[in-house]
């Protein structure tokens, strides 16, 4: 019995082989390497700057992450803000408002120029900083000249100016508040000084 079971032509052999190989690969012989890539940490090499959340009086500590390493040719941009774990008040946590700080800084609608609305006017006009500072100084000086009380009715020294108020913010540190009191209360005699800082 030297007769083979079937006589395959070359064409038939190639055809059968190709179909067979295609079937095997379709059934799941996959040689592509499966891999997973974890996203890069977006703050891996950012510059960290400590700051204080400007919203409420709790004054949570925050870390502001900026692009670049402060090299001369790099213009930094804020990419992320999160709580400062070393800060004794919030210990890294933040509230829903505080955690949006990045959007407070990187925002098309953020006010970056002086806006002035004249008394009685209905429109805001853009003014230069120098103009604004000069005007504030002028008004403070005029008000003080007019309203400073040197002494009370019985002749006792007062040096009190109650017609001007100073409002600080929650990011004011001890040092800033010292300067506020020094400049406005000791210097100009302003009595109403208030801020919401607890730091």
């Amino acid at each position: 019995m030297n007769q083979p079971l079937v006589r395959l032509t070359r064409r038939e052999f190639l055809r059968t082989g190709t179909i067979g190989a295609a079937t095997v690969s379709a059934l799941g012989f996959d040689l592509t390497a499966a891999y997973a890539q974890v996203r890069e940490l977006k703050i891996a090499r950012t510059t960290e700057t400590r700051s204080t959340c400007p919203y409420c009086s709790v004054s949570c500590g925050v870390i502001i992450h900026t692009l670049g390493d402060r090299s001369r040719n790099v213009r930094p941009a804020v990419v992320h803000v999160e709580g400062d774990p070393d800060h004794p008040i919030n210990q890294g946590t933040l509230c829903p408002k505080g955690i949006t700080l990045k959007q407070n800084i990187v925002n098309d609608r953020r006010l970056t120029k002086v806006k002035y609305r004249a008394p009685g006017s209905r429109v805001w006009e853009e003014k230069p900083w120098d103009w604004a500072i000069d005007r504030i100084a002028r008004l403070v000086k005029d008000t003080r000249d007019r309203r400073l009380r040197i002494e009370d009715a019985r002749g006792r020294a007062l040096h009190a100016l109650t017609a001007v108020g100073v409002i600080g913010g929650c990011t004011d540190t001890n040092e800033v508040n010292y300067l506020l009191v020094k400049a406005f209360r000791a210097g100009l005699g302003v009595v109403p000084i208030e801020q919401q800082a607890r730091i």
Binding site: K42, H80, V81, E82, T93, L94, C95, P96, G98, I99, T100, K102, Q103
Partner: peptide, 14 residues
């Protein structure tokens, strides 16, 4: 229910 986690998630994941 302060939702700080919701905002933190949105912010971190852009």
């Amino acid at each position: 229910g302060c939702k700080a986690c919701e905002v933190a998630c949105q912010e971190w994941n852009d």
